[in-house]
Nucleic acid binder design. Structure first.
Lengths: 63, 63
DNA sequence: AATCAATGACAAGTATGCTTTCCATAAATG
DNA sequence: CATTTATGGAAAGCATACTTGTCATTGATT
């Protein structure tokens, strides 16, 4: 899975830590997901879509 | 998470086994997801959306 | 009545997601 | 130069997703 987290964070000037707090997960989870080391669970994907006001498909795509 | 799998299967007259084969997962996984015992991974959610020609948001929702 | 297809669920095992803790690097700031 | 902030990643542990195998129930068919 590819994701646009880095760009979406940059647009909002959010650090990984900022995003982690909004998502209520650890910074390491944000980093690992952003770098593609693993995929978020579906509930977390929904939460990510929520905080960016986008759909899951806007943010994640299959490679 | 709620899901519309049962209805979507019914509309297509697919058994859980039929859907499992299209998704390349076990029938037990389809059953567990459909009954809400656990959520699919994000890659599987994408695949589910694919086989139904819908978005993840069309199929799954947070409760 | 006997069989079969579909569904629901449990158990044990493997794989993946997520946590905390820790370390390293690079860029900005006092 | 010393410190802080942001990022990337490893290790160990717990939680969840998914597997195969098995069993029980229900409804349809023969």
């Amino acid at each position: 899975m590819n994701n646009r987290l880095k760009v979406l964070r940059a647009e909002r000037d959010w650090s990984q830590q900022d995003l982690a707090e909004r998502l209520e997960v650890s910074r390491q989870s944000v980093n690992a997901i952003e770098k593609g080391r693993y995929d978020p669970s579906l509930p977390l994907a929904f939460k990510i879509a929520d905080v960016f006001g986008l759909t899951i498909e806007d943010i994640f795509s299959r490679d």
